[in-house]
Amino acid sequence: MIHLRTFEYVPGEHEAEKASNSYLMSLVALIAGLPLPIVNLFATLIFFMGNRKSTYFVRWHCMQALLSQFSLLFINSFGFWWTMGLIFGKEEISDRYIAYMIALFLFNLMEFIATIYTAIKTRKGVHVEWFFYGSLANQLIKPRS
């Protein structure tokens, strides 16, 4: 799921700090923005925009942090509105809802742990590529010529 790769160049101390901050910020935004799932996506998007003129390493990790929030957005939004429907609507709690909530919790926990691990590794200058999101970030972010 998570691969440690060699980056094109050895990132400097300031780059590692900024790249690591993108993951840390997404964690803080996730906790501050609960239960609204869109908050986290906006936060990582603004953080990426703020660092768009930064170095390749920083931009790459900001993009990976941003992309990783997309899948969470869909899963959490669905769970959020399903819960709202149960609270304010006539629908009752079903086995399917409980199964979905367990899956949602596990997915969020996995993402949370992966984000903390990546933040720690990136702070040390290690390039961490996630499954799927890493390849997408490679496609979207290119080094400046």
């Binding site: 993108s22 910020m25 803080v28 906006f42 936060a43 603004i46 703020g50």
Partner: peptide, 16 residues
């Protein structure tokens, strides 16, 4: 503070 969101982002960006 950008509805609280920008303020959180700036905690991580203001030093730079």
């Amino acid at each position: 503070g950008g509805f609280g969101l920008w303020a959180i982002i700036d905690w991580f960006m203001i030093m730079g």
